[in-house]
Design a protein around this nucleic acid. Sequence first.
DNA 1: TGAAGAATTTAGACGGGGCTAAAGTACAAA
DNA 2: TTTGTACTTTAGCCCCGTCTAAATTCTTCA
Lengths: 224, 224
Amino acid sequence: MTYTLAEEDYLKAIYKIAERHGTPVSTSAIAELMQTRPASVTDMLKKLADKELIDYKRYHGVSLTRTGARQATLLIRKHRLWECFLVDKLGFSWDEVHEIAEQLEHIQSDTLIDRLDDYLENPKFDPHGDPIPDASGAYRMRYQILLSDLGLHKPAVLVGVREHASSFLQYLDQNRLALGATLEVVEVLPYDGSVRLRLGDGEPILISGQVARQLYVRQTTESA
Amino acid sequence: MTYTLAEEDYLKAIYKIAERHGTPVSTSAIAELMQTRPASVTDMLKKLADKELIDYKRYHGVSLTRTGARQATLLIRKHRLWECFLVDKLGFSWDEVHEIAEQLEHIQSDTLIDRLDDYLENPKFDPHGDPIPDASGAYRMRYQILLSDLGLHKPAVLVGVREHASSFLQYLDQNRLALGATLEVVEVLPYDGSVRLRLGDGEPILISGQVARQLYVRQTTESA
DNA sequence: TGAAGAATTTAGACGGGGCTAAAGTACAAA
DNA sequence: TTTGTACTTTAGCCCCGTCTAAATTCTTCA
Ligand SMILES: [Mn+2]
Ligand SMILES: [Mn+2]
Ligand SMILES: [Mn+2]
Ligand SMILES: [Mn+2]
């Protein structure tokens, strides 16, 4: 019923890779995300399979079992709630909280997390716009498309980030790109795919196609 | 500069034993407090000595170096601040927080603890009445004597507990013995040393000598 | 279809932290 | 001063999670 820190982190990694690239999840993908060697991953996969947290067939990658997936979403719930705490209550900025939440998510307590949830008034999204699973592990996907797929002159709002690196988040801060910001694509430069944006009603800014592919937006209804 | 969870817990244990029983601290005392075997303690003592966190001479016990003591007080600071958070913000009771704080105290972040301190408005005592070291590791001992050493009819206030076990704290709750309660010894039964107390201005209650030796009180001035 | 070549697993090792059993040391009582 | 007993350390082992190097399997493409 209770798993080690390493086991939890592996389950989370598998969950995240499966969410983005589908199943089965390869050994090397896990190794890359977790900054370890493939051989180490293989060792852990055997252990997780023994505990029936994953389905594993040698040389063919893994997928989470029902139990494994539930454990992973509970860990993600804890991670995101702690990030909310750090930002909303302690005044950290969104680029500073990931490392700390990476540790806090492993605190073992049946009641702590649910009390924290209530204390934060049951937030539905974390500081990066990612949805927070409820105590049963359920969450709604947020409606989103990549900014790079948004048509010209379609009003939209920034709802999430695909990349979580500090340097990227700081770049967004410097360009006034905060969650909830309203924006509209003014022009896509044909040469390199750079995107010119109007943010709110300010001056247009230019961002690279690279950046545009890391931002999730939701189109706002053009009427009303 | 950064220590493992086990190393931190050992340093804290040595600190606490030294505080209560003086120095040098014996291998077996550490083993008993940490619920491990003396052989395991000896192993760790060698490692801590190599890192110059303790002074260790085979067969003669240990004491903390300046560095070791500083590390221990910082851990205690973290433990007690998290206990305040759990009680004051999340609504836990004082008998539920120790185990959780035992985990939270190991979260590594330069700024987290100082922000938490500010968020809690720099408390000077934790929910058990124990003093909280400041960021430099300094703290004032609270003025205290054991209830078992308090004379008859001397007004006093409950300021701390020597025993932290849940069952003990719950016993106190059931007898309305909360920190800050005013009390006065009405009678000491000669047969077994039980103590009859008047709590505030209620009915006197009877507690065992055993319990009286686990409670710290501060005499309130009889004048004024 | 049959190698390369890439991905994955196995073999063997290591450091951290724990244990038991056996050996060594200190100290108090005779 | 000796000796018995309690305390402490050592020796040897285990599990966890990681690594490198070598072997294996899969896949792709000539
Ligand atoms: Mn983690
Ligand atoms: Mn996040
Ligand atoms: Mn601890
Ligand atoms: Mn406490």
